[in-house]
Simulated assay, not measured.
Amino acid sequence: MIPRAQFGNTGHLSTKIIFGAAGLGSCSQAFADEVFDTLVRYGVNHIDTAASYGNAEERIGPWMKEHRSKFFLATKTEDRNADAARRSLERSLSRLRVDKVDLIQLHNLVEADEWEQVHRTGGALEALVKAKDEGLVDYIGVTGHGTRIPAMHIRSLKEYPYDSVLFPYNYAMMSDSSYREDVEELLVICEKQGVAVQAIKSIARGRWNNTSPDTPHYSWYEPLTHADAIRRAVHYVLSNPQLFLNTSSDYRTLDHILNAASLPISAPANIEMEDDAREFGISRVFDGHDLERI
């Protein structure tokens, strides 16, 4: 079974693998049900979705009627003002068929102007705090993409005691010294404050322009597909006890990820990760400030 750990200060023992539900956005309910059967088989007990993930919340909804108590349920809002964020949350509750979510997250809060809007009077955070007071959510987190997001999370945690953060974490990204320094500073803060840390893009091979345009795309980046390389990428993340790993939206990789997490975790040697980078052409999915609004 997949190991579990305290998800920050929430008191929830989450599986170290969190199911990323973005891939449910354009699939049938029958396919979604098969995916959920897989999650139950492996004992995954934490779901991460978002209002902007197509029909993902609606695909999760039917499962919540029977299985709500088995899952820590997280969603996200992209809205930056209070009224819109409240409407987004209420719509998510309806789609998910629940009375509350465990975690609501500000989705991809990386741009300075949006950060200012969220945190001022009448901003989205105000609405989420009110929803927490009303019992519609238990915890509030913040997420983001791109090379600037660890530093922005540090800024966010100075402004408000968020319960969780989410950002890209893999060997290629951490090989960039500037990015690594920001991540390491963020991890120290999260450890001190009891903030849960979620890793995304952990099995990314690179952007799709590395391969033939005829290759089917089930996530915006190209994931690794080789089982051993996925195992090493998963263990690279999970060997850090602070980190939880969010699965790829390409569900062809789901069994490989879950299998890898079910094995005894052993940190791969740098030479192994470097060999994988050469053999599979692994590159950073973010480099500079481009594509950070994804």
Rank of each mutant, 00 (worst) to 15 (best):
V129Q: 13
Y179Q: 06
R4M: 11
G23N: 10
V118N: 07
V188G: 01
H153G: 07
N270R: 15
S239D: 04
D250W: 08
S92Y: 07
W208E: 01
V118M: 11
K100M: 09
G11K: 15
L254W: 07
G135A: 06
E191C: 03
R91P: 00
P3A: 14
R95K: 15
T10K: 06
A112M: 02
I294E: 05
S248K: 06
E66G: 05
E66H: 13
L109C: 05
V129I: 15
S177V: 12
R87Y: 03
G281I: 02
Q193C: 08
L238H: 11
K132V: 06
S249R: 02
R59P: 10
Y218M: 04
G206M: 13
T247P: 12
A196P: 02
Q6G: 10
K192F: 04
H12S: 05
S69H: 15
D113F: 01
A267L: 11
I104T: 03
Y171H: 13
R155K: 14
R284Y: 04
F36K: 07
L103R: 00
T147C: 13
W115N: 00
Y218W: 09
H153R: 06
D228H: 07
A21E: 06
P216Y: 08
V237K: 10
E126S: 08
R180T: 00
R148H: 12
L254C: 12
L73V: 09
R86W: 09
R284T: 08
H153M: 13
P62V: 00
Y171W: 10
K192T: 05
E279C: 10
F71A: 03
S175K: 13
H107L: 05
Q193S: 10
K70P: 00
E272N: 13
L89H: 04
S249G: 15
I47T: 01
G206S: 14
S164Y: 00
Y139H: 12
H235Q: 08
D163R: 01
V44L: 06
H153V: 05
Y236I: 05
S69V: 06
P213E: 10
L109Q: 02
F31I: 01
H235V: 08
D255N: 14
A21T: 06
A5I: 08
A172F: 00
V137I: 12
D133I: 07
N45E: 00
S212L: 09
C190T: 05
G281Q: 04
K16R: 15
E57L: 12
A30W: 00
M273T: 08
K65D: 09
E58I: 02
A199N: 11
D163Q: 03
